[in-house]
Simulated scan of single mutants.
Amino acid sequence: MNFYQIMRVMKITMVIITCFLVQVSASTYAQRVTMNLKNSPIHVVLEEIRKQTKYDFSYDVNVFKNAQPVNVNVKAATIEQVLKACFLNQPFTYIIKAESSFYFAR
């Protein structure tokens, strides 16, 4: 093999490795959640998401004291879909700062 053939093989290998890593990253971020909770506090929903996905949440426990209980019935939903259902008609917002950190505020 000459130099150009070796370089071509190395380039193809790098493209394949890059595609593989991007796919692994995307599938990790798009984890799916299944739950059926009725009249549950928001912190229970967040704990269930944490158990199923290993995502961490950052929030002040006192923020959710005045929250209405929530009903969440989802099957293979994304974390964003679950959070949307959880915070529907609630006086709270959430911000996704990183893949594994969520911050909640009034």
Results as ranks from 00 to 15, higher is better:
I17F: 13
I17G: 08
I17T: 13
I17V: 15
T18C: 04
T18A: 07
T18W: 01
T18P: 02
C19A: 11
C19Q: 08
F20V: 11
F20R: 08
F20S: 12
F20Q: 13
L21Y: 10
L21S: 10
V22I: 12
V22P: 05
V22H: 06
Q23N: 10
Q23H: 11
Q23F: 09
V24D: 08
V24L: 09
V24K: 10
V24W: 04
V24R: 12
V24G: 03
S25C: 05
A26T: 07
A26P: 01
A26R: 07
A26S: 04
A26N: 06
S27A: 13
S27T: 15
S27W: 15
T28V: 12
T28Y: 08
T28M: 08
T28L: 07
Y29R: 12
Y29M: 09
Y29L: 12
Y29W: 11
Y29S: 11
A30K: 03
Q31N: 13
Q31L: 12
Q31T: 14
R32D: 10
R32L: 14
R32H: 13
V33Q: 03
T34V: 06
T34A: 04
T34S: 10
T34H: 03
T34W: 01
M35A: 01
M35S: 02
M35G: 00
M35Y: 03
M35D: 01
M35H: 06
L37D: 00
L37H: 04
L37E: 01
L37K: 10
L37N: 05
K38A: 14
K38R: 15
K38S: 13
N39D: 11
N39C: 04
N39M: 06
N39L: 05
N39A: 07
N39P: 01
N39G: 05
S40N: 07
S40W: 00
S40C: 10
S40R: 06
S40Y: 04
P41E: 07
P41S: 07
P41A: 09
P41W: 00
P41Y: 02
P41I: 00
I42A: 01
I42K: 02
I42T: 00
I42R: 00
I42H: 03
I42P: 02
I42L: 04
H43S: 12
H43Y: 12
V44Q: 14
V44D: 10
V44E: 12
V45W: 03
V45N: 02
L46Q: 00
L46V: 02
L46D: 01
L46I: 03
L46M: 09
E47Y: 13
E47G: 13
E47T: 14
E47V: 11
E47R: 15
E47A: 15
E48W: 06
E48A: 10
